[in-house]
Design a protein around this nucleic acid. Structure first.
Lengths: 192, 192
DNA sequence: TCTATCATGTAACCAGTTACATGATTTT
DNA sequence: AAAATCATGTAACTGGTTACATGATAGA
């Protein structure tokens, strides 16, 4: 019914169910074991959420409900045909069409004149340091390895590219502010 | 009470109220006229939402309620002391500490093996084109002008830096996939 | 004057999060 | 056997969105 799966977590569920039918908890374990929670926000309860939604919308179907011992029932879900279709469709769109993302740092930049220029220099310094560390980690993670094919590290390569760009941007921006020539307007807001 | 303003829209409200007391609708108009909605998601109704929250948490206070003609009452809000504090605090943190953002393209990359390699090449091509256009626009917007000080375009400079980085990444990635050597795993998922 | 659009706000809905619940297994 | 942790799920809360409402002004 609902035209599309807006939530990335829903897409993982569909993608995993393509491999084989599973129950929600198994999906969660798999997601963590494959480190997807680094790229896709994952909260245990949200998983049950999306599973219910996907079921409601006909993208997945309960297959059997088994119980082992006295544990609560586990419902095993399987992908439906329309589920498979929607997975492909959404994924194609995500890849082909850049989405507008609202980044928090961008919001902060839009309000930056609220802070006095000298303080901004300091704060940007702190950010720079954090970014540098982050970049080092990502370089480590994406270093070619034998046990993982490169395609499975591609998300990290992307993060790395963005982090490096941000680092350069911040460096430049800080230098500009530090040089003192920040324009009358900003200066005027902070009489010293 | 609540420790912090999580929503960027809340921060704009605080920032604007620093200039002078205003009623919600005026805040909205100002936000649009300053083009902040390009960096901060803005929905008319969400504004009333956050205004209510900020009031509940003691960051802003109704000052007077005026009515002009038969229009509904407009409540004018003013920033409180703790509002000013929280604004500065949150902004400092946003600048100094990089937040983890969950980007949709990143999610897509994490699931990319679901799509067959040749199709991925095509889709990345489409994305490239969109990115190129976006970059051109941003270059235009951030070109030095006389009527706007550079600090007010800094958000766009940031977007531009990220867009350029993404463009380069996509170009490289597409070339890799196109070269055909995508690894056994991915290949194996798509018997042709 | 009829229609469209602006100005201003409320209410109903829904997705996602935090918190709670409970039996099973492992550790001390 | 008490305590801690794992496995599995539900329920309550809350923030944000879509949709609705209504008077005012302007254009045709």
């Amino acid at each position: 019914m609902a035209a599309g799966v807006r939530n990335p977590l829903g897409l993982v569920v569909l993608a995993f169910l393509q491999e084989r039918p599973m129950h929600p908890y198994e999906l969660g374990r798999l997601l963590k074991s494959r480190n997807k929670q680094k790229s896709i926000k994952y909260r245990h309860a949200s998983l049950y959420m999306v599973v219910k939604q996907l079921h409601r919308d006909g993208y997945i179907e309960p297959q059997e409900t088994s119980r082992a011992g006295q544990l609560p029932e586990r419902t095993v879900y399987a992908l439906t045909l329309s589920g498979r279709e929607v997975l492909m469709r959404e994924l194609r769109e995500l890849v082909a069409v850049p989405a507008k993302e609202y980044l928090r740092f961008e919001a902060a930049l839009a309000l930056i004149v609220v802070l006095p220029p000298p303080e901004v220099v300091t704060l940007l310094g702190e950010r720079l340091q954090a970014l540098t560390e982050r970049i080092a980690e990502l370089r480590e993670k994406t270093r070619a390895r034998d046990d993982v094919e490169w395609i499975h590290l591609i998300e990290y390569e992307y993060q790395l590219a963005l982090a490096e760009a941000e680092e350069k941007f911040v460096r430049r921006f800080r230098a500009s502010v530090d040089s003192g020539d920040v324009g009358e307007l900003w200066q005027g807001l902070h009489p010293s």
